Simulated assay, not measured.
Amino acid sequence: MIIAHRGASGYTPENTFAAFDKAIELGADYLELDVQLAKDEEVVVIHDAKVDRTSNGKGHIHHFTLKELQKLEAGSWFHEDFYGERIPTLTQVLQRYGGKIGMLIEVKYPSLYPTIAEKLAKLLTEEMYHNQTIIVQSFDFQFLKQFHQHAPSIPLGLLVKYSIKGITNNQLKEWSSLVSYINPNKALVTKTLVKKIHYRNMKTFPYTARDRKGMEKLIHNRVDGIITDFPDLTKKDPSIESSP
């Protein structure tokens, strides 16, 4: 599986319709996107806790209403060709891409948003989204437990930061009681780790591959999917596609 990191963010401004459209054009299997809550508790698609880096605004996401957020320009920071892109809501993304591509939804900074588990679960379990392929992921295992109480049918992924200690068998045993995916920093991935994840009946989508060499290594280690800024990277080299 090829998972487009914040959309095709190597080519377009991340977490925008331009990035998601490009990911579909390049044949990605999933969109990876980030969600947070606006001041009026609307679920919006943006990575950072502040709008500063990826828009012409300044300040924390939760200090803006949805109406205020959607007035911001969110494309020209990447390139002038993308002037006019906006910060989308998750509802807009689901409506626009439902049935076209899977979605790997990362909840950012859940501790900032006490109601986000309930809000997101309600949104994703509404009738209109039942047939979409959706995975919810986070670095916060406790948040995933909380979300699962509200939406037990939605599969979960645990993101794992790089640590020199790696991932232990005890951790995998604990995590496997809740999640279906272990999505580690790519530097943690070995063939042995992938075997251990598969032994626990989980899958793994490591993050974030940005070059062909990195992809080759992950494919060699038999991962189930790759989170990448460049969804077309494997298609440029047949030797990668045919790697065992």
Rank of each mutant, 00 (worst) to 15 (best):
residue 148 H to M: 03
residue 206 P to I: 09
residue 190 T to G: 05
residue 171 Q to M: 09
residue 182 I to T: 08
residue 146 Q to C: 05
residue 225 G to K: 10
residue 180 S to K: 14
residue 152 P to M: 00
residue 196 K to Q: 13
residue 149 Q to V: 04
residue 162 Y to S: 08
residue 215 M to V: 15
residue 159 L to P: 07
residue 236 K to E: 14
residue 202 M to C: 01
residue 191 K to T: 12
residue 229 D to C: 12
residue 226 I to W: 07
residue 205 F to V: 09
residue 168 T to A: 04
residue 203 K to G: 10
residue 228 T to L: 11
residue 159 L to N: 10
residue 149 Q to I: 03
residue 230 F to Q: 10
residue 217 K to E: 11
residue 152 P to Q: 01
residue 147 F to D: 00
residue 175 W to C: 00
residue 174 E to C: 03
residue 158 L to Y: 00
residue 160 V to A: 04
residue 209 A to E: 12
residue 186 K to Y: 14
residue 206 P to A: 10
residue 209 A to T: 14
residue 202 M to S: 02
residue 237 D to S: 11
residue 180 S to M: 08
residue 172 L to H: 00
residue 217 K to R: 15
residue 233 L to H: 09
residue 184 P to N: 06
residue 176 S to G: 01
residue 182 I to N: 06
residue 223 V to F: 04
residue 167 I to M: 03
residue 165 K to A: 11
residue 168 T to I: 02
residue 174 E to P: 03
residue 218 L to N: 11
residue 160 V to C: 04
residue 199 Y to M: 04
residue 209 A to L: 13
residue 143 F to Y: 12
residue 234 T to G: 14
residue 218 L to Y: 09
residue 173 K to V: 08
residue 193 L to G: 03
residue 214 G to I: 08
residue 194 V to Y: 00
residue 199 Y to E: 09
residue 166 G to W: 03
residue 203 K to C: 07
residue 172 L to E: 01
